[in-house]
Design a protein around this nucleic acid. Structure first.
Lengths: 339, 339
DNA sequence: CTGTTAGCGCGTTCAT
DNA sequence: ATGAACGCGCTAACAG
């Protein structure tokens, strides 16, 4: 604060009353004369008084602030989840402080420390790609900090969690490909360290097995990221195979867009020769030519629900409880890139 | 805080020393015996002690927190600006608290109030579409809150500002179209209440005039937003004109994508019959077919620079100063959608 | 080297 | 209806 902000003491001094009276007047305490109340309120407005939430938080041992930690904020997925979180928190008079871990465990730990010092009332965390050791999260749980993990799982950590049922969505996508006659279905997978990517891969395998199709190592490639760029090389590799696939299921839309780019450049027709299905339903996905078939995820609801569950814990006394895991349903959206 | 966190008093009591000594030990005060220092640090770690930044902030009258207010967070533009802001602030040991105004003046005002109460050390604001009255920002300035406006201008408000030179970028784009032989150039504009959209429109007009091309009202349509959906109707309208345009310059990439979609559906060739140039260079823009020509904006640098300027004000004593306006340069990127 | 005191801004007893 | 005293957690000034 670059300048001394006005305090209740300032107002009290000017009005020749006590700070306590000012406080009461400002908080609509019943036992206060209308006269002084009005004088106080008028002067407060004139002096542009704003209550100091630091002092209040210190007193109440509650900051009304939730710390949100995400791997990155620029992805459509996380930024729209955050939209849901914010809408719920705002409705409950809560603030939100956001941190990006940039997929780094170190940065994630630092954020947890910092938010702990700020004394946030609770944490909403989607762990970084590198987070395989949950020590810093376990400490949070042990210190009775309300904590909700969302989107990406921390397998042995027993806290509240909210996920999208990725397995279900991926299963639908691959089964659709099979039903429409595709027999050589490839999968460009995401980093195996991500629970979400693992679930999508598992569903891919299970769908093939269910229909007695062979699961070929050649048809499974792990991409280096989630961008179209990351989809380029894997797709080139697939197309160069002796027996190229007749369908590609990708870990997300970004990679699918890179895949479609390569396929079109090669003069191969989508979906006649190769079907493509992505995951996420990003805003531009339906404007490609052909428009991208994909699995829509309820991102906004994911944020809302995570925040709602967290707030329940925050508002409850810190009683013992059994952590709950919630799953939201995705939805297969068929467009032009698949038969 | 759901549970009493450990304080220096807790540590002091357990060690039979005074809180002040604990404080000194924890802060590497020179005059402290190695023995007690080590005992304190050991116990602090054991008890998972974290300094209470609320208390510290109250004492220091400084929260080390910057309030950032943007119209929305889900757009690529603002989320990558925020990335730049965060990197600079983190490097300086500062925190950031983000608020979305959702393009609403009321929400923007509420955020300003809230951040004032939280006692942020400074504000970084990109005003909402509805913000035409700057009263709430003027109050900030008058209360000597460090404030930097970025991306969108508040014309009569004399504070530090950081912009991209939109005019220059738009001028380059339209001149390029002219140079490549386009003569009937249309513009799908953004909301006239946005300084950025106004600058792009002004450059469009000026470029045409400069080359003695007529500026036709029929060729200028204001879109209802920045999404592909918002580009659909205006484009249909343009194509239905007795003399349809041979080029369309759009206010941003989102609208351009909607425009390309309509043009391709109509069986018209891009860029042979119609050139299209957008604005922003969003991540997927180069993967469309044809790839979208556009104007790249230094978003990350915009965030960095805004934060850097703000921090200079925050760290300087509140002396009088003349507000500065900085401009960053955009860059025309020619790809497949233009000749 | 360490303890005591005071105060940051506020709401809440307990008095009056 | 109002005031005085206290304490949230911490550091700085002053003693010793």
């Amino acid at each position: 604060m670059s300048k001394a902000r006005t305090t209740i003491t300032d107002i009290a001094r000017e009005l020749n009353i006590s700070p306590a009276t000012v406080s009461r007047a400002l908080n609509n305490h019943p036992a206060i004369s209308r006269q002084t109340r009005e004088a106080v309120i008028a002067l407060a407005r004139k002096l542009n008084y704003h209550p100091n939430l630091l002092a209040l938080s210190l007193l109440r041992k509650r900051t009304n602030t939730i710390g949100v930690i995400v791997p990155e904020i620029t992805s459509y997925f996380f930024s729209s989840v955050i939209g849901g979180v914010q809408d719920l928190l705002t409705a409950q008079g809560m603030n939100m402080i956001i941190g990006q871990s940039n997929e780094s465990l170190e940065e994630e730990k630092a954020l947890v420390e910092k938010f702990t010092s700020i004394r946030v009332d609770g944490f909403l965390i989607s762990p970084s790609r590198e987070t395989k050791d949950y020590g810093h999260l376990q400490v949070l749980k042990d210190s009775l900090f309300p904590l909700v993990i969302f989107d990406r799982d921390c397998e042995d950590l027993e806290v509240d969690k909210v996920f999208v049922d990725e397995y279900r969505g991926a299963l639908q996508a691959v089964e659709y490909l099979i039903h429409t006659g595709c027999r050589r279905i490839a999968h460009i997978a995401g980093s195996a360290t991500l629970s979400t990517a693992r679930h999508r891969l598992a569903a891919y395998r299970d769908a093939l097995k269910k229909y007695q199709l062979p699961v070929l190592d050649d048809y499974i490639i792990e991409s280096s990221g989630f961008t179209p760029e990351a989809g380029i090389e894997p797709t080139k590799h697939l197309l160069a195979l002796p027996e190229p696939p007749d369908a590609i299921f990708t870990v997300n839309d970004g990679v699918a867009i890179g895949a479609m780019y390569v396929i079109k450049e090669a003069g191969i027709s989508i979906p006649n020769e190769i079907s493509v299905i992505g995951f996420d339903d990003e805003p531009y996905s339906c404007y490609f030519k052909p428009s991208l078939s994909t699995v829509w995820q309820p991102t906004y609801e994911l944020g809302m629900l995570s925040a709602r569950i967290l707030m329940k814990r925050v508002n409850a006394a810190q009683e013992a409880f059994t952590p709950k895991v919630e799953k939201l349903f995705p939805e297969l959206i068929i467009r032009g890139s698949s038969r």
